[in-house]
Structure formats: structure tokens, C-alpha cells
Design a protein around this nucleic acid. Structure first.
Length: 496
DNA sequence: AAAAAAC
């Protein structure tokens, strides 16, 4: 396999931007896909997020875009993403690796004003990155012509399917020239998706990099039994958070938006640095919360499955499933927010009295048993199988344990280490109801959850740091999902 | 049973 970017046929401008970003070695999907994309072949890429998938299409597209230029309202490439945050993330990739290009990139997503989008479109956008709804809306308003699109990217196709976007995708494909290049990415290939590829791709090259539904070797997984009572569940969660010595930050998934909001408020009341992220929040709050979490101004991100897939937050130490996911694949996606880029990560799933069947399905899917731990976080025994998951017993007894030893480092072939993380304890976003005043953090907070002063935090993460030091020693390897916070997400300065 | 996405 190609061992560095210079052999892939990318242009000098792109290669330089990649080098400037500190990457030397392509990931597997990049090495496989880039030459084919440059040869204008259609691609079916079966790859999970976190494999460096985004760069595998962004880099060759930038190279191909160097010939020709944009005309008003006639984009030359179109990238479709299932969520707004993912679209914003791809946008940031174009800005980062297209810094030597004079390309105009338009981000067409819902929940934000039309004005900025219109201005970019009128000026002439080379690249359109969009969620389907807003793109079609803009099309119907006559703001864009799709007859000039010669590269189409359909990203996260299986998720588009889950979200009911396939009719939109079909419609959009019908609006594009038949003679075009199509790059199609999906983490899985269910029959409906397979069917779609045979309809919309021509003689595609099929690439597959990661085994489907595999959970990263770098993630230590645990189950903790809890009662079904919400307040007891929250109490258990707090204890688990406090017991984790290696916790630098965490994403906590709930199954329902309502519970996301409730839990975030509850954690806050208990003095934790927590924010909420779900799809009923206005887009500004979503961006601000995500931004704060990425920048370490927020330690705990309580989220719905809007954050389960694809979101690229480089250094998440823990994922908690406050609710066991009812779809086994969602488990894989959720815990995939940690253990990224060769780092280690911990995932802890709370198992309520009626969650046994979901846990069974998850264990079957990932083909391993998830060890049972007590409420303090210590591993005990294999998970019980369906039907015998009593809920009450000692799971709720306080134990005040420290976290257990972490797994050793794992090999890394993906990404460079991001800049040092900052610890800060300042205002957090009041995600849901804009308050008049920024809220100040209480001075004292539970040690494990509060972002501690820089020194303490560094001391807290020796294993993670060690693994990264080794990686850094040979220079950054690979090229992956580590992108800084998108400019788009940084636009809002004030946190209400 | 729920989440996501256009106004």
C-alpha cells in the first residue's frame, strides 16, 4: 500500500496543505480511494466514520477542482450529509485542505439564515455541502442550478436511509447530470442501500476498510446494572463519573430528547459542567454547545443520537449510555465517539431492568460479551443474558471507588495529536432556554467531572498522553478525522 | 420507541 501522500496523485496544492496540517501517511480508505477518485471512477466506500473517510473524498475533489472554475449558482460538486453537524465538519475539511485554492464553498443546512448561503451561491460556489432538506429548498427557490455538478458525494448513506432521506436523495440524483462521478459512502450495506448503488453508480469500484459493526479494540466496554427509576439512574451515573479517574470529558447518550434536557440540567444542578445537544434545540445552541465541548469549556455532553454518528471530537475519554440503545448498530456508533484515532477510551452502558434484550442484541452484533461492572466501575463478571437482569440490588450502593487501570495503548495509524487541550471553567451554554446572563460555574465541583486546573488534568491522563507521545515521535501518522472546530461552529461568540 | 431533517 502507498505509504505516503506523495504517491497518490494529489496535486501539489493539496499535498502541501496536507503536509501543513501535519499528516504524512494516508489511512487505508484514503490510500485506496484517492487514486480511483482521481481517475474519475465511481466509488462505493464501506467505511465507518473515524477511518479518515472524509479526507478520502475531500483531497481528490480539491485536486480535480483545480481545473475549471465556478459560475454563479452552478456548483460543480455536491456533497450530501445526513446531519447539519456533519455537513459543517466536511465544510471545515474543505477550508483546511483547500487553503491553497481559491475555491468557494457553500454550506447549505437548515436552521440558519438564507442570507449568507444566498450570497455565496450568487457569487458562484464550486462546492456545495448540504443536508438534503435545505438543498432541495434552495433548489426550489431557484437559488441553485444542478446541471453543472460533475461530482456527487453521498455520505453516510445507511444513515440517510434510517432518516428517511432516500426519496430526497433519489430526487436530487434526478436533478443532476447523468454523466457525473458519484462517490458513495456507507458504514453498512443493507439491501436497500445496495439497490441504491446499482441505480445511481456506474461501474463503481468497491472499497471496504473496516469490518462492519466492529467495535474498536481501543475501547474498554462495561455494563452497569441500574434500576429503572430515573433519579436512581442519574445518581448512579454521577457516581460512575466521579469514580472514573481517567475521565477528561464524556458524551452521555439518552434515547429521548426530553431526557437529554432533563439529565443535562440535573448534572448541572449537581455541579457538573454539562451541556445538552439534540435536534429540537435551535441550531445556534447546538453549535455553541458542540463548540464548547470541543474546546473543553464543557466536560459532559448529554446528547441524543444526533451526536452518535460521525461527529469528530478527537479526544473523548468516555462514552456513557444513560439509556441502552434500542438499535444495536447505534451502540457501535455511540461508543465510536471515544477511542478514536488510536487513543484509548471507555464506554459504560447503564442497563435497566428491561434492557436485557437490547444488550443481548448488542453483544450478538459485536460478537463479544460486555463485562458487567458495579456502580463504582469495577468489572466483575460477564453480562447476564436476557431475562435475568434484576435491577434493584447493590448497583446503587455508593462505593466511591477510583477508576480501574486502563488498557494499554493500541497501534495508531490514523491521526495526529490535536493541540493541547485547555482546561477552563467558565460559562457554559444554556442550551435550551437562552438566559439573560452567562452562568458562572460554581467554584467547587466534583473532582472527576470538573475540568481541573491544567496541571492536575495532565497528571490525570498519563496513559493517553503516553500513547500520543509515541505517535508524535515519528511525526503524525495518517490523516484522519481530527479536524479543529469548524469555523462555522465558531462563528457565534457569546454563549447565552 | 426514538432520533434526524425544510419552511
Amino acid at each position: 500500500m502507498t505509504s505516503d501522500f506523495s504517491g497518490l496523485g494529489l496535486s501539489d496544492k493539496v499535498t502541501e496543505a496536507v503536509a501543513a496540517a501535519g499528516y504524512t501517511k494516508p489511512t487505508e480508505i484514503q490510500a485506496q480511494a484517492i487514486p480511483h477518485v482521481l481517475q474519475k471512477r465511481d466509488i462505493i466506500g464501506i467505511a465507518q466514520t473515524g477511518t479518515g473517510k472524509t479526507a478520502s473524498f475531500v483531497l481528490p475533489m480539491l485536486t480535480l477542482l483545480e481545473s475549471g472554475r465556478a459560475r454563479a449558482r452552478m456548483p460543480r460538486t455536491l456533497i450530501l450529509e445526513p446531519t447539519r453537524e456533519l455537513a459543517a465538519q466536511v465544510h471545515e475539511n474543505f477550508e483546511k485542505y483547500g487553503k491553497n485554492h481559491k475555491l468557494s464553498v457553500a454550506l447549505l443546512i437548515g436552521g440558519v439564515s438564507f442570507e449568507d448561503q444566498n450570497r455565496v451561491l450568487d457569487r458562484g460556489a464550486d462546492v456545495l455541502i448540504a443536508t438534503p432538506g435545505r438543498m432541495l429548498d434552495q433548489f426550489e427557490r431557484g437559488r441553485i442550478l444542478l446541471t453543472g455538478v460533475d461530482i456527487l458525494v453521498i455520505d453516510e448513506a445507511d444513515r440517510m436511509l434510517d432518516m428517511g432521506f432516500i426519496p430526497d436523495i433519489e430526487r436530487i440524483c434526478g436533478l443532476l447530470p447523468a454523466r457525473r462521478q458519484t462517490l458513495f459512502f456507507s458504514a453498512t450495506m443493507p439491501p436497500e442501500i445496495q439497490k441504491l448503488t446499482s441505480r445511481f453508480l456506474r461501474d463503481p469500484v468497491r472499497l471496504e476498510v473496516a469490518r462492519q459493526n466492529s467495535t474498536a479494540e481501543t475501547i474498554e466496554q462495561r455494563l452497569v446494572k441500574v434500576s429503572g427509576k430515573p433519579d436512581e439512574k442519574r445518581e448512579t451515573l454521577r457516581r460512575l463519573i466521579r469514580a472514573e479517574s481517567g475521565l477528561t470529558n464524556a458524551i452521555i447518550f439518552c434515547n429521548r430528547k426530553r431526557d437529554v434536557a432533563t439529565l443535562a440540567r440535573s448534572l448541572e444542578r449537581h455541579g457538573f459542567s454539562a451541556g445538552a445537544l439534540h435536534g429540537d434545540m435551535d441550531q445556534k445552541s447546538r453549535m455553541e454547545t458542540l463548540d464548547a465541548f470541543k474546546a473543553d469549556r464543557l466536560t459532559l455532553l448529554v446528547a441524543s443520537d444526533v451526536a452518535a454518528r460521525g461527529l469528530d471530537i478527537p479526544a473523548v475519554s468516555h462514552v456513557f449510555n444513560f439509556d441502552a440503545p434500542t438499535h444495536a448498530e447505534d451502540y457501535v456508533h455511540r461508543i465510536g465517539r471515544t477511542g478514536r484515532a488510536g487513543r484509548s477510551g471507555v464506554s459504560i452502558t447503564l442497563m435497566g431492568p428491561s434492557d436485557g434484550k437490547y444488550i443481548d442484541a448488542i453483544q450478538k452484533l459485536i460478537q463479544r460479551d460486555i463485562p458487567l461492572a458495579d456502580a463504582g466501575g469495577e468489572a466483575q463478571a460477564p453480562a447476564p443474558s436476557r431475562g435475568e437482569d434484576g435491577s434493584e440490588e447493590n448497583a446503587l450502593a455508593p462505593r466511591g471507588r477510583r477508576g480501574r487501570a486502563r488498557r494499554g495503548r493500541t497501534s495508531d495509524n490514523e491521526t495526529a495529536e490535536p493541540p493541547a487541550r485547555r482546561a477552563a471553567s467558565e460559562a457554559r451554554p444554556e442550551a435550551e432556554k437562552p438566559a439573560a446572563e452567562p452562568r458562572r460555574r460554581p467554584a467547587e465541583r466534583p473532582a472527576a467531572a470538573a475540568p481541573a486546573p491544567e496541571k492536575e488534568r495532565r497528571g490525570e491522563r498519563p496513559r493517553r498522553a503516553r500513547s500520543q507521545d509515541i505517535d508524535d515521535a515519528d511525526g503524525p501518522v495518517g490523516f484522519g478525522p481530527d479536524s479543529p472546530v469548524p469555523a462555522f461552529l465558531l462563528r457565534s461568540s457569546r454563549i447565552n
